[in-house]
Computed example of a mutant assay.
Amino acid sequence: MISLFRSLHHVCVVVADLDQAVAYYESLGVGPWYDYPKGGPYETYEVPNPVASAAMRYKCADLDNVQLQLCQPPAGLDSPQRRFLEECGEGVYHLGFESPDLGAAEERARTLGVDVLARGRRADGSGFCYFDTRARAGVTLEIRRTQHDAG
């Protein structure tokens, strides 16, 4: 049986002002920060609002044990992250877990009765899948498979 949520990859915090948040974290010694690497094109891309998703701004910092992501959703475009910011304020939007097999992990989640909110897959098997877990887990859970360079 595949274990879905065992290898924490990142914590994603939604913020109102990405530059201001990065500056504050840097003042605390957290960093360095870099733009989220978008990777190659998706063969499958199912998100609530592709325009808002493409306009989302992310910065990442690799800590010793986990990646910290800051996400600023675009103003004026509906997205789950924008709704979270407006309803809850800034805070942890999702926890991202690494999985060696996204297809198997997504199928396992479905057998557990967990619905998919958004998903994307690349030709190399990398990608992501967000689950509808906020009401019962207190946070959105994501599984992902990191894109690895060949050779």
Rank of each mutant, 00 (worst) to 15 (best):
E107C: 02
G40C: 09
R108I: 05
P80G: 05
H94Y: 07
S79V: 07
A55G: 08
F84R: 00
Q72W: 03
F5L: 10
P48C: 05
A150C: 08
G125A: 07
E26D: 12
Y93F: 14
Q67S: 03
L4P: 00
L68D: 11
A55Y: 12
L141W: 00
L28V: 10
G138P: 07
V116H: 03
M56D: 08
S126N: 01
L28S: 05
G138K: 12
G96S: 05
E98N: 10
H148S: 14
E107H: 02
C71F: 06
A52F: 11
E106W: 05
T146N: 13
F131P: 00
H148M: 14
A105H: 09
R6A: 12
F5A: 03
R110N: 03
M56E: 11
E26L: 09
R121T: 09
V11N: 07
H148F: 13
D101G: 10
F97G: 04
Q147L: 10
V14I: 09
Q81S: 12
D115V: 06
A135D: 15
C88D: 12
Y130E: 05
D64F: 13
G91M: 06
R6I: 10
E43K: 11
V30F: 12
V13I: 15
C129Y: 10
E43H: 11
Q20G: 10
V116I: 14
G125V: 05
Y24H: 15
G96K: 01
R136G: 04
